[in-house]
């Protein structure tokens, strides 16, 4: 698994979980209070930071898990074959841990395209809201939602291509 694929998994999980807390809180507030009085700004900025931080942290965790997995599977294979683990094989696998090749870049591009399309469609609602002079609260929420949805679908698209294979 390359860094890009690990990052895609991390991003999918983070953008699915972290913004859910934010929207539950903020949309819940919107039911009980007039939206002009809701202090969503700080929460939103925090949520963006935590989403990004969670993505990075998960990517690092997955990388460490992968590295451990390389060593463990080398030992297990060696034990089965009744010989010591091959250090060259382990070193090769460890080196390719963070290699980024043309396939990774191609899949990354596909993911960005999917992201871009979702964002483009998602940005229509906030644009209409802004042009019809609706509350900033709803403009901001629909924009953030569009970004989160775009990031999520982009990450899922990358994962699907990594697992099922498409581009060369």
């Amino acid at each position: 698994m390359s860094t890009e694929e690990r990052a895609a998994w991390a991003s999918a999980v983070a953008t699915l979980v972290v913004p859910a807390f934010y929207f539950t809180r903020v949309l819940g507030d919107a039911r009980n209070y007039p939206v002009a009085e809701i202090d969503y700004q700080g929460l939103l900025i925090w949520n963006v930071g935590i989403t990004i931080g969670a993505t990075i942290a998960l990517t690092i965790l997955l990388t460490i898990a992968h590295a451990i997995g390389i060593h463990v599977s080398a030992e297990v294979a060696a034990a089965k074959a009744g010989r010591p683990a091959d250090p060259d094989e382990v070193e090769r696998e460890m080196k390719s841990l963070d290699r980024t090749d043309a396939r990774d870049k191609a899949i990354s591009r596909r993911g960005e395209v999917v992201s871009g399309i979702v964002l483009g469609i998602g940005a229509v609602l906030p644009l209409v809201l802004a042009m019809t002079e609706r509350e900033q609260f709803w403009i901001a929420q629909s924009l953030y939602a569009a970004f989160i949805l775009a990031a999520l679908t982009g990450a899922i698209a990358k994962i699907v291509v990594y697992r099922t294979g498409l581009s060369s």
């Binding site: 700004q41 964002l119 483009g120 940005a123 900033q136 924009l143 970004f147």
Partner: peptide, 22 residues
């Protein structure tokens, strides 16, 4: 589409920032 998506992203980020600061 790849080249275009970066423009939409930048526009969207600017819009979100501007909306947050009212």
């Amino acid at each position: 589409q790849y080249v275009g998506s970066s423009m939409v992203t930048i526009g969207g980020m600017a819009a979100l920032t501007l909306s947050i600061v009212d």
